[in-house]
Amino acid sequence: MTVFYFVAFLSIFFALMTIFTKNPVHSVLYLVITFFTFTVHYILLNAQFLAVVNFIVYMGAIMVLFLFVLMLLNLNKDTEPMKSNLVKFMGVIAGCCLLVTFFGVYRVFDISNPLTVVNPEIGLVKNLGKVLFNEFLLPFELSSLLLLTAMIGAILLAKKEPKQI
């Protein structure tokens, strides 16, 4: 339990650092560390597969892409665009939504009756695969279809228009 509290503290600390640092590259690096603490959380829950996939996909691929784009753009303080009032307004609304959600969760959440894991081995690859391809086959296939659509959409957007002569 102490390990959990320590890692949870680290997650929140680095998440806050992500928001409060001025330099975008530092911010991304703090986010990488935050994701790493999530991986530790998954390992503590004995969800090995989820841990390793989180490690590969979020830390290894997505954050490298983030860093890649930031380095390519070479954002500095003087080139940073001014934040308009609209953006600030949207930020406030999003924050309020998060607060409402937290409040709702707090209302619903019953702390005297904690969830118990029926099968502690559920996070291992074999069991996860069986559950995913038997009980949750339709949602799984639908989400993969969604990802495929997003991928094709991204390729179409990135494709150059044919040159007009």
Binding site: F55, I56, M59, G60
Partner: peptide, 8 residues
């Protein structure tokens, strides 16, 4: 995963 991390 470790190989993916190496590029950092």
């Amino acid at each position: 995963g470790v190989i993916a991390l190496g590029v950092y």
